[in-house]
Computed example of a mutant assay.
Amino acid sequence: MSGHFSPEQATDPRTFWDARYGERPKIWSGAVNRVLADTAPGLTPGRALDLGCGEGGDSVWLAEHGWQVTGVDISATALERAREVSESRGLEKEQISWQQMDLAEDFPAGEFDLVSACFLASPIHLPRAAILQRAAKAVAPGGTLLVVSHAGAPPWAGNAAGHRHFFPTPDEELATLDLQDDAWDVRCAEVRSREATGPDGEPGLLKDTVVIARRR
């Protein structure tokens, strides 16, 4: 499949995201999210849930660092690529598994020592607040919740970048999560900057809203 598929053309989220991933053989870099890579080494590996795992970069990294990972995405196309990457890296089914799921309708069962939701967003309908609150409930006692979102548009996006996107502040993200004070320790709620390269090779500084919380 080629060409750009706009949100207006989508009949449902699965159609949109399969078409989006079908635009190119590879959408994402495959590199681990920097915040996850900075956070996970301070945790004891256990069961991890990667929500909106896409082509599997974060999930594969976690599995290679001792975690038992469940990667979840709505796109069958993305998950097939993720599965190919994990198999090429020699990861076994006991180390990493993939689930196709519309998180607006369903959610993985069980509790996890790490629940990661990095850049969980969509240009079409996504009940993000409800999903993130379910993500928090899936964190096991002593486990960690990691939520990363864009805090602003990239400098190469132009003035129209904010029309369809919501860029939450740390306070807004905490309000969305609705974490109970007596059940959670919020370790981090801040905006972080990172260097990145635009589609035409131009360098830029991106800002992310990061929330890290530990269930007591």
Rank of each mutant, 00 (worst) to 15 (best):
V139H: 14
A78Q: 00
L126A: 01
L43K: 10
G90H: 07
G46Q: 09
A37P: 14
L205W: 09
V139L: 10
D208N: 14
K207W: 03
H150M: 13
T169I: 07
W67A: 13
S2H: 14
P141M: 08
V85T: 10
W156V: 08
G3N: 09
E202Q: 04
P45C: 09
F16I: 02
R216L: 02
M1T: 03
A104M: 07
S2C: 04
G162E: 15
D185C: 03
D73K: 00
P170T: 04
H4L: 06
P45T: 10
A175R: 15
A189S: 11
I74M: 02
S88K: 12
S75D: 04
P13I: 06
R89K: 11
R134Y: 08
R187F: 04
S29L: 04
S6K: 08
R128W: 01
F166G: 12
D38I: 00
D113L: 06
I96T: 10
L43N: 10
A135C: 05
T11L: 11
C53Y: 00
G143H: 03
G198K: 09
P25Q: 13
A196T: 07
E64H: 12
A135V: 01
A138L: 04
R164F: 15
T44I: 13
A130C: 15
K93F: 03
R89Q: 13
S149Y: 00
L120W: 00
D185N: 11
P199S: 09
A175Q: 11
P13L: 02
Q99C: 12
A138N: 10
A19T: 06
A82S: 12
E87C: 04
L36A: 08
L145S: 03
A136I: 04
T15D: 06
H65S: 08
T44N: 05
W156R: 11
Q100C: 08
E105W: 01
R214E: 14
S116R: 00
A138S: 10
S59M: 13
T15V: 07
R14N: 13
A48F: 01
W67V: 09
H165E: 07
A48R: 01
V211C: 06
S86G: 12
M101R: 07
A213H: 07
A135R: 01
L51Y: 00
D171V: 14
A161W: 00
E105D: 13
I124A: 04
V139P: 09
A213P: 02
V72C: 04
A175T: 11
L103M: 12
G71E: 01
P203A: 14
G42D: 11
S59T: 15
D200K: 07
Q9L: 14
H163T: 11
E84Y: 05
G152I: 01
Q9N: 03
S97M: 13
K26M: 09
D106G: 09
S75V: 06
H163W: 12
Y21G: 09
A196E: 15
A151I: 03
F5V: 02
L79Y: 02
G22H: 03
D208R: 03
D178S: 15
P154L: 10
V85L: 08
R216A: 05
A183G: 10
P127M: 02
G52F: 00
S6E: 14
T176I: 15
D50S: 14
S29G: 10
G90F: 10
R134Q: 12
L114I: 08
H4Q: 14
A117V: 01
E80S: 15
I96R: 13
N33C: 13
P155W: 04
L51E: 00
M1R: 07
A151H: 13
L79P: 06
V186W: 11
E84K: 15
V85G: 07
